[in-house]
Design a protein around this nucleic acid. Structure first.
Lengths: 333, 333
DNA sequence: TTGTAGGCGTTATCAC
DNA sequence: GTGATAACGCCTACAA
């Protein structure tokens, strides 16, 4: 395998100085057309390709890369976020380096460190449920940093979140308006910020509707759709609930599987829309968040800082909206 | 914002030479414990962080990054692939830089060039349907390169694919065995390699079952689930087909939407499993491919080459398997 | 318009 | 064991 040709090789081949090649490569115009032609020919002949890594170590130059760390790239929620970030970054000439923390605090920290060592220009992070490190202990300089889908864990960082509590409240109220009196909350661990917020919204809605929170109707162990299916199956068997608020995608699907298994269903509203939500019978009502907008907003925030935006850090809470498709109503008999 | 501290700063602070700091940072052992302690303290005090970009320009050193270019990170198929690649890469200490080509040839090429300029150590690509550039014209050195989900477009590269034709054949034969005689093919453009292969498998199965390919039953315009829904809706209305082979995920979901709309269904087998396939009534039969295995295989192939594997380039075709859940059978009346 | 000198942060060589 | 010194590939002053 041949060595990568360098600017020096090109300069020698074109019989000009290194600097002139540099000018040519960087698109500067003040070059004698004749030399420019020789340089162009040499570049083609040698197959010269810039070494952006080398260029980026000069002061003022950067890698034009931003880093994104979240729990799991295979989760459609995060891959949608990542895609939105990528679109905005790409339009500004930035590459995107993505790393999955697996929701493990130490792993998350290692990945962040690695990206900082790689000298990414900006960083977007979704911290794991048990954040290990205090950001205020990370030595400066820290590149522009945005917390996504989580509140900022660092005073110098922006944050972009959805209105998880509001969305959960809307969903719960919709079930209540449809006549439910014993609404179950099915979701993942309250260690997760979004889950805490959604449960708070659920509780607020119950209070507004004059109902008390019944702890036996709060399920926070639905880490997979199978676990959600078992939990909702139990609710069906002992007839303890008359409606289900599924606080995430996996819970919604688990509930639907339990309904299918039992041959009967409860009124249901889920958090987050999904591709086949229209295929349910009835179609599944959901609280939807604009995931792409969240990703774009986070990316624009980072890029804005890179362009010199020095406005005070802010936390942007994006709205959710309720899409009622029928599943919030009781089964007709 | 403070400047990033350098090894020189650490050396000065610890009153040792640059090289000794380098030794310390790189975990070499032949250092006086006293100096090591001073260096460690200086690193903490100054908040020193290695600059891997700078390190990577030394000959023999690399960025420990691999690049992945495909059409769309938001597509669950690709994000699953990406996650598998990331897992393997991460375990070997490599970061992953991901770029979406949007199925546009020139864009794909630009992204590849950018990654080469960034000096990624390896490259995994899913070329777009209209590949613009001839890889044999890309000047060497080219880092280890693997084509994923597509045959190799470059003689020096490995490839990892699923048995698209075999899977499509199995699906079509299953429909035929269940009694179908006019099986429609619903999919995306034959410009896409996987679609071509799947149609070939479909045609082979028809031939084996003694049926002819009826072009009016081949739909290759289902780019979105809505288009698939319309196409299958038309098939239902004019009663031209008695079964559907949906050649990708979107087509499967479109077909299900059309069935729901029409209030009746045709026997159906889809290509690629999906999260809610069990929720159908009946549950949806599919040809499944091990997407994670594909991603892992591609990543291991790249890493193997980086470790010095010089075995001849190869194309690995991974098996698919048919999961029959009921939807391949006719509706009972 | 072109070229020389120097430095970016790191690692390698090779004396001490 | 330690440290000058010279690279790596590129870019910025500053001269010519």
């Amino acid at each position: 395998m041949p060595r990568n040709p360098t600017m020096n090789d090109v300069a020698r081949e074109a019989r000009v100085s290194l600097k002139t090649v540099s000018r040519h490569v960087n698109g500067e115009t003040n070059i004698d057309p004749e030399l420019a032609a020789r340089i162009g020919a040499a570049i083609v002949k040698l197959g010269y390709r810039r070494n952006l890594s080398a260029a980026s170590i000069r002061p003022g130059r950067t890698s034009k890369t931003i880093g994104l760390v979240f729990s799991d790239l295979a989760n459609p929620y995060y891959s949608t976020l990542a895609r939105a970030v990528e679109s905005v970054a790409d339009a500004a000439g930035y590459l995107l380096t993505i790393a999955s923390s697996n929701e493990e605090g130490p792993r998350h920290d290692r990945l962040v460190d690695r990206l900082l060592e790689q000298r990414v220009d900006g960083l977007i992070v979704v911290p794991p449920r048990h954040a290990a490190r205090d950001w205020s202990e990370v030595p400066p300089p820290i590149p522009p940093l945005v917390f996504l889908d989580r509140p900022a864990l660092f005073s110098g960082a922006d944050a972009v979140l959805a209105d998880n509590a509001g969305g959960a409240r809307d969903a719960t109220l919709a079930l209540s308006r449809a006549g439910a009196r014993r609404i179950a909350f099915v979701g993942d661990s309250p260690d997760i910020h979004t889950m805490r917020e959604r449960h708070a919204g659920y509780a607020a809605a119950l209070a507004e509707a004059g109902m008390a929170v019944d702890d036996s109707l709060t399920i926070t162990t639905a880490h997979t759709k199978e676990q959600a299916e078992r939990a909702v199956g139990a609710l069906l068997r002992d007839d303890s609930a008359d409606a289900v608020f599924a606080a995430n995608n996996r819970s919604t699907i688990g509930a639907l599987l339990a309904f299918q298994q039992a041959g009967r269903r409860l009124p249901l509203v889920g958090f987050d829309d999904f591709e086949t939500s229209l295929l349910g019978n009835p179609p599944v009502s959901v609280v939807s968040q604009d995931i792409e907008l969240m990703g774009r907003t986070a990316a624009e925030s980072v890029l804005g800082r890179l362009r010199g935006d020095t406005s005070p850090v802010s936390t942007r809470v994006l709205p959710t909206w309720l899409i009622l498709r029928g599943s919030e109503k009781p089964e007709r008999n």
